[in-house]
Design a protein around this nucleic acid. Structure first.
Length: 198
DNA sequence: GTCGAGATTATCT
DNA sequence: GATAATCTCGACC
């Protein structure tokens, strides 16, 4: 079960499409991954690792197959799958998915939630629905309560520009976003620019 | 359905 | 002190 460690020891751009259709299991909740986004670490102006290694992104430099979590905008948590060999900072952000098991549990975590498809639509929502928090950062995805299963065969996928990135160095120009075409849980989200404090 | 604006806190300089 | 890989809400078509 689980996944081939070697399958994740490759550049993020190659691993990202392989995650589509994969299953992420956290406790009693299972998620089918439908949308991801690749981050190439130091080579990527939009990545946290672009400005060098720090406490926050240290996990991204570690071995593949681990979970990288971070806080953004003070209120939200996002989850990444670390890939590339140890020492190379790259990861894949889980942007959206479909709850395939434990829907009632996920719904109870998001009290004011609406449709099932909305439970994990968006990176921060996905973490809330799955119960992923900062303490899960650095967890091995092949042991413990959080597990990842890669699909047996490749899924069809589409690519497009990234959204929500600060545009530092025009990083939104790269088509490093991957999703399963036609899936209802994927990105109905607008591509707006970060807002400054008022 | 789309568009625009505000909220809130860990992390880094 | 500035920044941030977002979400929710309200207004409008």
């Amino acid at each position: 079960m689980g996944f081939d460690r070697d399958a994740l020891s490759r550049p993020a751009l190659e691993v990202a499409p392989d995650l589509l259709g994969g299953i992420l299991t956290v406790g009693d909740v299972a998620l089918r991954i439908t949308e991801v986004e690749a981050y190439l670490g130091e080579a990527d102006p939009g990545s946290h690792a672009f400005r060098g290694r720090g406490n926050r992104n240290a996990v991204m430099y570690g071995p593949p197959g681990h979970l990288y979590t971070y806080f953004t905008y003070g209120m939200h948590v996002c989850a990444n799958v670390v890939c590339s060999p140890e020492g190379v900072a790259s990861g894949i952000l889980l942007r959206a998915g479909e709850i395939v098991e434990g829907v009632d549990i996920a719904r109870s975590r998001r009290h004011s939630s609406k449709a099932d498809l909305d439970l994990a639509r968006g990176p921060a929502r996905l973490c809330v629905a799955m119960g992923i928090t900062l303490v899960d950062g650095g967890t091995d995805l092949d042991s413990g309560r959080i597990r990842l299963s890669l699909p047996g065969e490749p899924s069809p996928f589409a690519t497009g520009p990234r959204t929500g990135v600060s545009g530092l160095g025009g990083s939104t120009q790269y088509p490093w976003r991957f999703w399963i075409p036609g899936d209802p849980t994927v990105s109905p989200y607008k591509a707006h620019v970060p807002k400054k404090r008022g």
